[in-house]
Design a protein around this nucleic acid. Structure first.
Length: 862
DNA sequence: ACCTCCCGCCATGCT
DNA sequence: AGCATGGCGGGAGGT
């Protein structure tokens, strides 16, 4: 099945990219051919063939070029090797070389470890996908495929994917499949991680460790013990390490299941590692400290050296990936003893507000417990830290979740089929290059939106704050932001609603438990699609949506319900909203059918039940926590996606390709169906829907309360299953919540706020216009060749977008933009590892760079 | 000699 | 049983 599915699925980006090149590639390489054909067979990875193949990606050479440009490191390496052709810039070149070369030479040429380094591999990997993927497009990632294309063992891909997953840049769809989300959710995720990190008092822990180190260098144990105490206390009464994985959106959902194993896993480690950066003041974290903290959490007991060493090894792995993402950069901290390897955060700054800080703020820091409680509620949901289960979900829930996940997976797989349908409809978009162009444009917009969105996020956050949950707020905020962004996207054209969505949603949600709120928030955004910033808060927004979305009207009715159902029903009909049931119908559709089958087939009942379960679980969790956090976030994603989709639609003509939606839905984790629906209607709504499904209960509740309209509009057919009980439940929660939401759009004061936003925009735009690729690369990263093309369009888009976002762009955005570029910036100094001088276009970077370096005591790279 | 961290064995767990 | 995941640590390349 999967295989087939896989075949069906394409990853638009890749494919597009790949394909474009295909011609060339074919001639040039086999690789592509192999890859494509191979898709199906997921079988375990045979080891990659030797690199020999050259560059399958040839086509992607451009990308590579970009990449190389982006990452000096790579370039350097290549250059060193001589392999690197600036123009081509492809490392692969060497492959060719080696062919010529004798064994020795060959070895030399290829071998260097560096070439095989995770960091380089990650760059290649990242080059394949745009930073801000167009939701419309299929963003599936086939691990086998990637492994082949990159000529690496699958094992290595897992390393990369796990880290990316921890940042919610990808989410697991099914067996060999992941969905690429790019950086759409990155800020949110970081914000969440930051808040969590704050909760965990990582900063304190770091301090402690440092002290101890001063006292005793190596005795980790001692320090550990202390640390542990601290940690435990911080972490939670449970004393559990916070192993939990912070789940944002539905994304992690699966992870949980997958993760059954561990959660010490790379994913968790990665998140914690990132938290350390976000929390620590200098934002420089030495591996030693990070390892200690991570170990401490896990178990204080074994402080073994071996364990420590292992931890360090993993941290290197993670650091390599994070470096590739330009989130951190290697530096050396000179301490008394000597210089220690460390990493400096070069990623976007997360505004405290946005992130968790704000949420946290409410509670006095001093009140750890209090915080805990709150956090736990909110945060737990997010992470499960304190709770035994790593995941947010309760164990019991976990089972359910798994089942759900399975369903989802199936569904996901199904999507392919659905895709077909959608594709048929939308086929235009995704398939053709033009469509890609559009997508790219959309992506650009998305990026812009995001940027703009950040500010918004802040706003949202603020709103959230009013609410109880601190943690939530942060989470929500992010989500909201994105959502807003999408919504912002006015592309839809509609907009009227703008204010209302957020506002309405926000209020509702906030009051409630974190979870509750979060949902609400998301919903709004979606609904809001439109909108703009929250300022207006009018709840009513919905109407607009409805207007927008064709189907929306129907949806209105049961938005909440819909969500659940919608998924099921939707699909089929993306067309048909109404039918709630449709199991049969659903099936017809394809894989979608699968989803449908699972959901649909089971149909409403099963689905509803499951959903209910989920919801319930969610509720439980929530009770515990859950809810929302993850979900919320996802929403954001969805929203973002939605936005993108919207963009596409506009670009395309407004309509859109179902495909996109479809994809997005998966992301949401959920319910492709919705997506389909969305496709029909508005993406936003669609996004929402999925969430609903995922989150279901809360979301549901929220929705109704908030503005179901929008939702409704979006989803024509929602599933009602969410049990009424749930709904009631949610409603109650809602009721509980007080809506004091501040709508103010205030971006956060934090960074540059408004002014900046322009910058971001400008940035994104500029790059596109000018040297689209480079600019893009620098700013966003997406190396994809196609993008450049897109850029042109994107530009136009951006223009459109900008207006929307304008309001909000928050400081964060600005900050991010700066940081992001970071890579570029670093270079100024010269030595830093990560610099992306080449990229440089990012003007920002340069300015910033100095600072960074300054911070670091020592730096350097190799 | 130490820092990095690649490589791939093999456990784990799902199908 | 087979395959997908991914923990883990030996040991080698780099510096």
């Amino acid at each position: 099945m999967e295989i087939e599915k896989e075949n069906l699925f394409f990853e638009p980006h890749k494919r597009g990219l790949m394909k474009t090149p295909l011609k060339e590639s074919t001639k040039a390489n086999i690789v592509l051919a192999e890859i494509q054909p191979d898709f199906g067979p997921l079988t375990t990875p045979t080891k990659p063939k030797e690199v020999s193949q050259g560059e399958p990606w040839t086509p992607t050479a451009n990308l590579k070029m970009l990449i190389s440009a982006v990452s000096p490191e790579i370039r350097d390496r290549d250059q060193k090797r001589g392999l690197f052709d600036n123009r081509n810039g492809l490392p692969e070149a060497k492959d060719c070389l080696h062919e010529h070369l004798s064994g020795d030479e060959y070895e030399k040429s290829q071998p260097s470890r560096k070439e095989k380094s995770l960091g380089l591999l990650c760059h290649k990997f990242l080059a394949r996908y745009p930073d801000y993927p167009n939701p419309a497009v299929n963003n599936d990632i086939c691990l086998d495929e990637v492994a082949e294309e990159l000529n690496v063992e699958r094992r290595r891909i897992y390393d990369i994917v796990n880290v990316l997953e921890s940042l919610h840049m990808v989410s697991r769809l099914a067996k060999n499949r992941y969905t690429w989300h790019g950086r759409h959710n990155l800020n949110k995720t970081l914000g969440t991680l930051k808040s969590v990190g704050e909760e965990n008092k990582y900063a304190e822990q770091i301090m402690m460790i440092k002290k101890k180190e001063n006292e005793q260098e190596f005795d980790f144990i001692k320090s550990y013990s202390i640390e542990d105490h601290i940690i435990k206390s911080n972490t939670g009464q449970n004393g559990h390490p916070d192993v939990c994985f912070v789940e944002l959106p539905g994304v992690e959902f699966r992870a949980a299941s997958v993760n059954s194993r561990k959660d010490k896993s790379l994913r968790v480690m990665s998140q914690k590692f990132v938290m350390l950066f976000l929390v620590s003041t200098p934002q420089i974290v030495s591996l030693e400290i990070a390892a200690k903290i991570l170990i401490g959490e896990d178990h204080v007991e074994d402080l073994d050296k071996s364990k420590f060493k292992t931890k360090i090894r993993r941290l290197y792995d993670i650091a390599n990936v994070l470096s590739s993402l330009n989130l951190i950069k290697k530096v050396h901290v000179t301490e008394e003893r000597g210089r220690k390897p460390a990493f400096k955060w070069t990623g976007p700054e997360i505004s405290p507000n946005t992130s968790g800080s704000s949420p946290v703020m409410p509670f006095p820091t001093s009140d750890l417990e209090v915080r805990r409680a709150t956090k736990e509620n909110c945060a737990k949901n997010l992470f499960s830290t304190r709770g035994k289960p790593n995941f947010t979900r309760h164990p019991s829930l976990i089972k359910l979740v798994k089942s759900i996940e399975n369903d989802r997976r199936k569904i996901n797989s199904a999507p392919s089929s659905p895709v077909k349908i959608n594709k048929a409809e939308s086929s235009q978009n995704s398939t053709s290059i033009p469509s890609k162009m559009a997508q790219l444009a959309a992506i650009c917009k998305m990026q812009l939106d995001e940027q703009s969105g950040e500010p918004r996020k802040k706003v949202k956050v603020q709103l959230a704050r009013p609410g109880h949950c601190k943690p939530v707020a942060p989470l929500d905020a992010p989500a909201e932001l994105e959502l807003k962004a999408p919504s912002l996207i006015q592309p839809l054209g509609v907009v009227p609603l703008i204010p209302s969505p957020l506002s309405s949603a926000v209020p509702v949600i906030l009051p409630q438990a974190p979870s509750g709120p979060s949902y609400a928030i998301y919903l709004q955004p979606t609904q809001a699609q439109a909108m703009t910033p929250p300022q207006g808060l009018s709840p009513t927004v919905c109407p607009t949506h409805s207007s927008k979305a064709p189907g929306s009207k129907d949806s209105a009715d049961g938005t909440a319900n819909d969500a659940t159902k919608s998924s099921a029903s939707c699909r089929p009909g993306s067309l048909l909203p109404a039918p709630e049931k449709p199991g049969a119908k659903g099936r017809n559709r394809e894989t979608a059918a699968e989803r449908g089958s699972k959901r649909a087939s089971t149909l409403e009942d099963s689905v509803s039940k499951k959903k209910l379960k989920e919801d319930l679980k969610g509720l439980e969790n929530v009770s515990a926590t859950l809810f929302p956090s993850g979900y919320l976030i996802p929403l954001a994603q969805c929203s973002s996606l939605g936005a993108e989709s919207i963009l596409h639609s506009k670009e395309n003509s407004g309509i859109l390709s179902p495909n996109h939606r479809i994809y997005s839905s998966p992301i949401a984790g959920v319910i492709p169906v919705t997506s389909s629906e969305l496709s029909a209607v508005n993406f936003p709504s669609f996004h929402v829907t999925p969430l609903k499904l995922m989150v279901s209960p809360t979301s549901m509740a929220a929705v109704p309360v908030g503005n179901s309209p929008a939702l409704a509009s979006t989803h024509p057919v929602p599933v009602q299953n969410p049990s009424s009980a749930i709904v009631n439940f949610t409603l109650q929660h809602l009721g509980l919540l007080s809506p004091s939401v501040q709508v103010s759009a205030s971006p956060g004061p934090g960074t540059g706020t408004v002014p900046l936003s322009p910058r971001t925009e400008s940035v994104s735009v500029i790059p596109e216009n000018a040297s689209s690729q480079q600019g893009r690369a620098t700013s966003s990263d997406s190396p994809v060749p196609g993008q450049s093309q897109l850029n042109g369009q994107s530009v136009a888009v951006t223009g459109a977008q900008q207006p929307i976002p304008v309001t909000p762009k928050g400081s964060q955005l600005v900050a991010e933009s700066f940081f992001r570029t970071p890579g570029g910036p670093t270079k100024p100094t010269g030595s830093s590892c990560m610099d992306f001088d080449g990229a440089d276009k990012t003007s920002f970077g340069t300015l910033f760079v100095p600072q960074r370096k300054l911070e670091v005591s020592t730096e350097d790279v190799h």
